[in-house]
Design a protein around this nucleic acid. Structure first.
Length: 424
RNA sequence: GGAGAGGUGGCCGAGCGGUCUAAGGCGCACGCCUGGAAAGCGUGUAUACCUCAAAAGGGUAUCGCGGGUUCGAAUCCCGCCUUCUCCGCCA
């Protein structure tokens, strides 16, 4: 969410930069400016009237104390009419504020100037890659068949217990998941992140704070009885830790991490890439989050990207890093890198991480600020987050890429965590 | 889930219909004092928005959150959230 102030001040550049997203903002921006002008006018008039009621009330109090009943009653009469007017203005003001916030939530974040323009995935730019996407033999199996062969993931049982998209991990399948969680958390801690284990359900305010509500309401599981949402990513509870806070600049950067299951309805995505572990309703993920000084958030984005790159390298997976084009970025992001690993049997790139700078977009919603010690000004902080990493697609790639006639080779770095070197 | 008691500034804590413009204390910042420090003394110490070219100044709102009563609400009424105590249930 943007502030009206920054939109009014930078009207033309806002419209220009949002075009990178293939988003025509001119009409909305102009309406925001018009509604805000009217709002301020109404607000000023209402507050002036309210001030006169306040001072009259004070006088009435004094008159009563002095025992001047008649004069007090006369003053009371006067306030009646003013009160009516205030009522009119305040309902008008409430209407205008509603219109304004309705308009504001329609504007996606403004892309960084380095974001390439474009409409969809085809316009993303590969900026780095690593590892060998070596060829497998003809009889190489996709991970869902390997999972059945070695009896480590049971999709049918998950289906029976819950439904499609809820796999059941067994034996070494469950163990390697737990190994990855520990490995990713240990790495994050070593990189300076503090571990949190947050709630898995969040309230409406938290959903709004990070931008899932109101736009992506249908993507979250909603427990209507208690009006709580199952988290689609740890980003939501982890970032909302700081909702409403005014930090000190010496607190920054805040670097936190957490493992959580993630729940996504994935409404409307049936039939596409849903085989096996490719797209699930429940999956595990370790997330990293930073709260940063605005001057350093893009530096931090690069740092987080490099960090995630070390993870995929340590797992010895062939990967590529994509700079998302404007049209493929999420609503709240100003710049996003996606990490994809190559699953050799499917011969498909699977997205395993998305790391984004949200600049002040989430902070404005969260009212997350910090006091700059040098200038004593209160400024809006920047938030960033990234998956480090999402487990199922990593597992899919490991299974497919590391298959041998003897079984699946566990990546070196995970062996201390799994206690075994082979699945098979 | 039931009953009772609470939620006041960075923190503690008073106030329970009219200078509340929220007492007092602690903390913090600055100044005085000092060779330096402590103590002491003094001054200051929230957030958002509006107004103003800007600053100064002025205004509005905020005492858990949302409504209501009243000329006037931290204070009275209603709903919700939350904390504590007791009971019930429970991994």
């Amino acid at each position: 969410m943007h502030t009206v102030k920054s939109i009014s001040k930078n009207r033309d550049s806002v419209v220009e930069l949002l075009a990178i997203r293939d988003f025509n903002a001119a009409a909305i921006v102009d309406e925001i400016i018009a509604v805000d002008t009217e709002k301020r006018e109404v607000q000023t008039r209402m507050e002036t009237l309210r001030a006169s009621i306040n001072s009259l009330s004070k006088e009435i109090g004094i008159l009563f104390k002095q025992g001047k009943r008649a004069e007090a009653d006369a003053a009371k009469e006067k306030t009646g009419k003013i009160k009516e007017e205030v009522k009119d203005f305040s309902s008008k003001l409430a209407d205008l504020e509603k219109r304004l916030s309705h308009l504001l939530v329609q504007l996606p974040n403004i892309p960084h100037e380095s974001v390439p323009p474009g409409k969809g995935a085809e316009d993303n730019i590969e900026i780095r890659s690593g590892g060998e996407t070596g060829k497998l033999s003809k009889d190489a199996l996709p991970h869902w068949e390997l999972a059945r062969k070695y009896d480590i993931i049971d999709f049918e049982l998950g289906n029976k217990i819950t439904g499609s998209g809820f796999p059941l991990y067994k034996g070494k399948g469950a163990l390697i998941q737990r190994a990855m969680i520990s490995f990713f958390l240990d790495e994050a801690i070593r990189a300076g992140y503090t571990e949190y284990a947050p709630p898995l359900m969040v309230n409406e305010e938290s959903g709004f704070g990070t931008g899932q509500l109101p736009d992506k309401e249908g993507q979250m599981y909603h427990v209507t009885e208690d009006n709580l949402y199952l988290i689609p990513t740890a980003e939501v509870p982890l970032t909302n830790i700081f909702r409403g806070d005014i930090l000190s600049s010496s607190d920054l950067p805040l670097k936190i991490t957490g493992y959580t299951p993630c729940f996504r309805r994935e409404a409307g995505s049936y039939g596409k890439d849903v085989r096996g572990l490719n797209r699930l309703h429940q999956f595990d993920k370790v997330e990293i989050v930073q709260v940063q000084h605005p001057d350093r958030s893009y530096e931090a984005l690069e740092e987080m990207t490099s960090y995630i790159e070390t993870l995929v390298k340590k797992l010895e997976l062939p990967y590529r890093i994509m700079l998302l084009c404007g049209g493929d970025m999420g609503f709240a992001a100003a710049k996003t890198y996606d990490f994809e690993v190559f699953a050799s049997a499917q011969e498909k790139w699977l997205e395993v991480s998305s790391v984004s700078n949200f600049t002040s977009f989430q902070s404005n919603r969260l009212k997350l600020r910090f006091r700059d010690e040098a200038t004593k000004n209160t400024l809006t902080a920047h938030t960033l987050n990234g998956s480090a990493l999402a487990l199922p697609r990593i597992l899919a790639a490991i299974l497919e890429n590391n298959q041998t006639p003897e079984g699946i080779k566990v990546p070196e770095v995970l062996i201390p965590y799994t206690g075994f070197e082979m699945i098979g």
